[in-house]
Amino acid sequence: MASIISINNLSKTYASGPPALRDVSLEIEEGEILALLGPNGAGKTTLISAICGLVRPSSGTVTVGGHDIASDFRAARSLIGLVPQEITIEPFERVINTTRFSRGLFGKPRDEAHIEKVLRSLSLWDKRNARNLELSGGMKRRVLIAKALSHEPRILFLDEPTAGVDVSLRREMWDLVRQLRDEGVTVILTTHYIQEAEEMADRIGVINRGQLLLVEDKATLIKRMGRKQLTLHLQAPIARMPETLAGYGLRLSDGGATILYEYDTQSARTGITRLLADLSEVGIFVRDLDSTQDSLEQIFLSLVEDGA
């Protein structure tokens, strides 16, 4: 698939403080949902801000739809819709007017049918004449999305879209993002909710201390990085692990009733067959077994801790 955003060796250092972005290179494919994962202060918002024109990069280049964000900023920015992390909205203006304003600001002629479609898709149509300050926090966030979608962007940046919203609204937002992707919109979202990335993204980028640690297809990432844990439920509890099994790195739990064995799914031999044979040899018999895979959260934590 073709890249819609190309980021090359992008760095940003603010006047005070350490570098916020260090030599970031990234290709974002058209029509994908990319989740940028990282702890607070990792550089996610700076990366988005640099692409959207809110901060000046210290070095590096970015092209959006083939247009350089500095020399051809009009063409580049007209493709982008941005939903910021903070709820920043004109408090005294009405929902429909603030949405119309965004469309006009991005150089698009009035299109009441499109504004209605956007507001309806976000369940805001009934509130179109309400002042922004009268809305709940969740609704204000939806207004921000409506503003970003008002000018029909091909790329949508969602900076921490579900921070502080309730579970049902979070689900609604996820559905909306999927719907946008189905309509061909490229979605880049930042989050520190692992579940969100796991649920939504096609690809995941992990960023920490201004460095892009990896960008990987979600399924591949979980498969490649994931370790599996085999849980063996014993017929009879054992007091301690026989020394002959020391090489497996086994752990006893449930008062000796279960044995835990961690193995790498990518290695040529998982060692399970040999382990079961060795257990049988020392008189430990297995009643049942199950296996679980690392969640993205565990993968993320191990990456961030390794990079720390």
Binding site: L54, P84, T88, I89, L105
Partner: peptide
């Protein structure tokens, strides 16, 4: 006012000189 409440982000990210 847009600077104060943060809505300046929209002006800065718009295709406008």
């Amino acid at each position: 006012f847009p600077k104060f409440i943060g809505t300046i982000y929209e002006i800065l990210s718009a295709p406008i000189s």
